[in-house]
C-alpha cells in the first residue's frame, strides 16, 4: 500500500512537470496552430538560468528562500525573453507561409538553442544546487512523498489556478481565446494579434522555466540536452489531452506521469519511455483528437 502511494506521488510530481511544459505547447498551438519544437529548449534555458543565479547567490550566502525566489523569477523572465525572441525571429516572419515552414523553423531553433548552450556553457552535466529543504513535518512520510515532490505539486497547482483565472477573467485572457478562435475577427476589433501571440509565448516560456527549475532541483543535475526528452514527453502529454486544450494539457501530463510511475514501479524502469509513448499511441487510436480535444478536419 505504501509503495502504491509512493508511486502515485511520484507519478503526480512527474505529471505536474509535464503539464507545466505541455501548457506552453498547447497554448501556442491553440493560437497559431504551430508546434513549437523549441519549447523544450526554453525549459532547458530556464533550468540553466536558475542554475547560474542560484549557484551565485548560494556562494554569496543568501538565505535559501531568497535564492529560490530570485532564481525562479530570473529563470522565468530570462526564458520568457528567449521565447519572445524565438517567436519574433523564427516564426513571425513566416506567418501566412505554408504550415510546414514554421515547423521546420521551430526544429532549427531547437537545434540552435541546444548547441548554443552547449558552446556557451558545457557539454557535461552540472550539479544543480538543492533548493528545496527537507521539511520536518514530512519526516514520518518521507518514504512516500519527498519535500521536492510536495513543492512541485504545490507550485504547479498555484500556477495552474493563476493561469486559469488569467485566461478566464482578464481582458488579455479573453483576447487570447478570441484570437485562437478567429484571429481575423480579433484584428477587426482592434486586438493587436501579434502582441497577443507574443504574450502567449512569454507566458508559456515562463511556465516552462518554472518547470525547469523544479525538475533540476529535484534531480540535482542538468545539461544542454535535458530539453529534448522533457519536450517530447510534454508534447506527448499535450497531444494526449487534446492539443489546444488547457485542461487537456494538465490531464495529459498527469496521466503520462502516473503511467510512467506505475510502469517503472511495477514492471521495469528500463521501459520508462515505452510506457509513456504506448499510452499516447493507444489513446490516439481511440480518440485521435486527444482526450479533451475537438475533432478537426485539417491540422498538421
Amino acid at each position: 500500500m505504501e509503495y502504491f502511494l509512493e508511486l502515485i506521488c511520484g507519478g503526480l510530481t512527474r505529471g505536474a512537470i509535464y503539464a507545466l511544459i505541455a501548457l506552453g505547447y498547447t497554448m501556442v498551438y491553440g493560437i497559431i496552430g504551430l508546434i513549437n519544437f523549441a519549447h523544450g529548449e526554453i525549459y532547458m534555458i530556464g533550468a540553466f538560468t536558475a542554475f547560474i543565479i542560484a549557484t551565485a547567490l548560494t556562494i554569496y550566502g543568501f538565505p535559501l528562500a531568497a535564492v529560490v525566489i530570485v532564481a525562479g523569477l530570473a529563470a522565468a523572465v530570462w526564458a520568457a525573453a528567449y521565447g519572445y525572441t524565438v517567436e519574433r525571429i523564427a516564426y513571425r516572419p513566416l506567418r501566412g507561409a505554408p504550415r510546414l515552414s514554421p515547423l521546420i523553423s521551430a526544429i532549427g531553433m531547437s537545434f540552435f538553442l541546444q548547441n548554443y548552450v552547449l558552446l556557451a556553457q558545457t557539454a557535461d552535466f552540472v550539479p544543480f544546487p538543492a533548493l528545496i529543504p527537507d521539511f520536518d513535518f514530512l519526516e514520518p512520510y518521507s518514504h512516500i512523498i519527498g519535500a521536492s515532490d510536495l513543492v512541485i505539486l504545490a507550485t504547479t497547482a498555484v500556477v495552474m489556478v493563476t493561469l486559469t483565472c488569467v485566461i478566464r477573467y482578464t481582458t488579455i485572457g479573453k483576447a487570447m481565446r478570441a484570437t485562437a478562435q478567429d484571429s481575423a475577427m480579433a484584428l477587426l476589433l482592434g486586438i493587436n494579434v501579434n502582441r497577443v501571440i507574443s504574450i502567449t509565448f512569454i507566458i508559456g516560456s515562463a511556465l516552462a522555466a518554472i518547470g525547469g527549475l523544479l525538475v533540476a532541483s529535484h534531480i540535482g543535475q542538468i545539461n544542454f540536452y535535458i530539453g529534448f526528452l522533457a519536450g517530447i514527453k510534454a508534447f506527448a502529454a499535450a497531444v494526449l489531452g487534446g492539443i489546444g486544450s488547457i485542461p487537456g494539457a494538465v490531464l495529459g501530463g498527469m496521466l503520462l506521469g502516473l503511467t510512467e510511475s506505475f510502469g517503472t514501479g511495477y514492471i521495469s524502469s528500463d521501459y520508462e519511455d515505452v510506457f509513456a509513448f504506448s499510452l499516447l499511441v493507444l489513446i490516439l487510436i481511440f480518440k485521435p483528437a486527444g482526450l479533451l480535444g475537438k475533432a478537426t478536419v485539417e491540422k498538421v
Binding site: 481582458t171 479573453k174 483576447a175 478570441a178 477587426l188 476589433l189
Partner: peptide, 28 residues
C-alpha cells in the same frame, strides 16, 4: 482606434466566448 468598426460578412462571432465576453472584446 480612429473610429472605424466593421461587422464582417458571416458575423464571425467567437463561438466559445460567452455573449458578454464577445461584447467585452468589442470594447477591447
Amino acid at each position: 482606434r480612429l473610429g472605424l468598426s466593421q461587422v464582417p460578412e458571416g458575423r464571425h462571432i467567437f463561438p466559445l466566448l460567452t455573449v458578454k465576453e464577445n461584447l467585452d472584446m468589442g470594447a477591447f
